[in-house]
Amino acid sequence: MVTRAVPSTRAWEVAASVPDPELPVVTIEDLGILRDVIEDDQCRVHVQITPTYSGCPATETIREDLVTRLSEAGYRQVCVELVLAPAWTTDWITPRGLERLAAHGIAPPGRVAGVVDLVLGVRCPRCGSTRTREVSRFGSTACKALRVCRECREPFDHLKPL
């Protein structure tokens, strides 16, 4: 029998606990990367994930981490499928994910609302000021921009709306 794992089943819980390799303060569930988990009564599990950016190098690590964690949890056969459509958007980051990002000094993205290049008042995650400016559209990873706060003068990462 095949059951689709809703966020209460054990397979989902195990998969959802995998941290993002580049943003370890959040899990792949927080980021909305984990799409679906299907398990059967033979202890086989099929996981669907979606990449954030097409070239995100974390995707391969996430795939390996899922296989490792689910195998350790007793699943005998783990299949991880990469699904591209519909395309990932930062709007899928959960409220808990947004909170965790901000708590760790990464300004969370605003809602996309259909327009990608509309960036309004990004708040400094340290002092809370909205007087911040973009230093570089491309930061330490593809998904982040580098900004600096005009108030407290600290640089910080901003997860770009996508």
Partner: peptide, 15 residues
């Protein structure tokens, strides 16, 4: 910053 930007753009294209 530009070094990082061009690398990231190249990475998008590679993906």
């Amino acid at each position: 910053e530009e070094d990082v930007a061009l690398a990231n753009i190249g990475l998008d294209l590679l993906g």
